[in-house]
Design a protein around this nucleic acid. Structure first.
Length: 280
DNA sequence: TACTAACCTGTACG
DNA sequence: ACGTACAGGTTAG
């Protein structure tokens, strides 16, 4: 539990969260109704709520996990290069909506959409002499008009966001329940929601529902897999179809083990940095 | 089952 | 400047 070993820049700039802003040396972030302020050196973490959530999964035995996923030189190199990169435990509803918004767009745009959603539908709060907007409730987004959602730049995602929020209200999607059940079943439930396919379901499961075997395969992860694991996972000139995704995921978990999601995070960070992609 | 195109929108290139 | 391509994907056909 040595918090000083968390690398905040790496962790925030690794595609898992969007509503974070660096002001001077402090990172400010929105996690549901909670506002965080985090500084690297000296390490300091403060939260707007009395009992702050375990954002950095400090109960995970990271040393053991990293050892466990280091099955080859590729992962070993990425964990070494990005020492201190962690998975963030996110507010499930915010995570769910964030990744529904992520489809077919880039980080900058996702951030913009979410900021507008907060500003329009969230609550303004003062924290450490600054003003922030919390992430809206399921009820608020379920009741929002399509017109208002569109004004946040959601485009074709607006309909999905509204419907997905309704699914939470009617308990078709119950995050507490999804946390308790197994990966496969939880994923099935998520995939039945409009706007959620394999990749987005895996992001939600990994980043907010305690499913560390989830291994989201997007454009970049796919690229890595083809580059380094083509033979191991038999990816020769395959396209990532619905069926293949599941097949490949099984092989991945078999190989990387129950903490495969951690491996994904390091690999993803490595490949994007290598290609000089922009972060927050 | 596998593949393809369309999808809103903002932005980065040319 | 202005237009075109593309972005961490999903869905419909």
């Amino acid at each position: 539990m040595r918090t000083s070993r968390i690398n905040i820049d790496y962790t925030i700039n690794s595609g898992q969260v969007f509503l974070w802003e660096k002001i001077d040396k402090n990172w400010y972030g929105i996690n549901g109704k909670e506002i965080f302020c985090i500084r690297q050196n000296p390490f300091k973490l403060s939260s707007s709520t009395k009992k702050s959530s375990d954002l950095f999964r400090q109960t995970d035995n990271v040393e053991k996990i990293l050892k466990n996923i280091s099955k080859d030189e590729i992962v070993r190199a990425s964990t070494k290069k990005f020492q201190g990169l962690r998975l963030i435990r996110q507010n499930p509803f915010q995570c769910y909506i964030s990744f529904i918004c992520s489809s077919n767009t880039n980080i900058k745009n996702i951030k913009q959409m979410l900021q507008k959603l907060c500003k329009k539908f969230g609550r303004q709060v003062k924290f450490e002499e600054k003003y922030f907007f919390t992430f809206p409730d399921p009820q608020t987004l379920a009741n929002a008009s399509l017109r208002d959602l569109l004004s946040c730049g959601l485009g074709f995602r607006a309909k999905s966001v509204k419907k997905a929020s309704k699914d939470v209200i009617v308990k078709k999607v119950d995050f507490d329940h999804l946390k308790k059940i197994d990966y496969i079943t939880a994923k099935e439930t998520l995939k039945s929601v409009r706007g959620i396919g394999n990749k987005i379901a895996d992001c939600i499961l990994l980043f907010s529902l305690e499913k560390l075997e989830a291994f989201p395969i997007d454009r970049w992860t796919w690229r890595i897999l083809k580059k380094y694991y083509s033979e191991k996972f038999e990816l020769q000139n395959k396209t990532l179809t619905e069926k293949k995704y599941e097949e490949i995921h099984e092989k991945i978990v078999e190989y990387f083990g129950p903490y495969a999601g951690y491996a994904q995070q390091f690999l993803f960070k490595m490949e994007r940095d290598l290609n000089q992609k922009k972060w927050l």
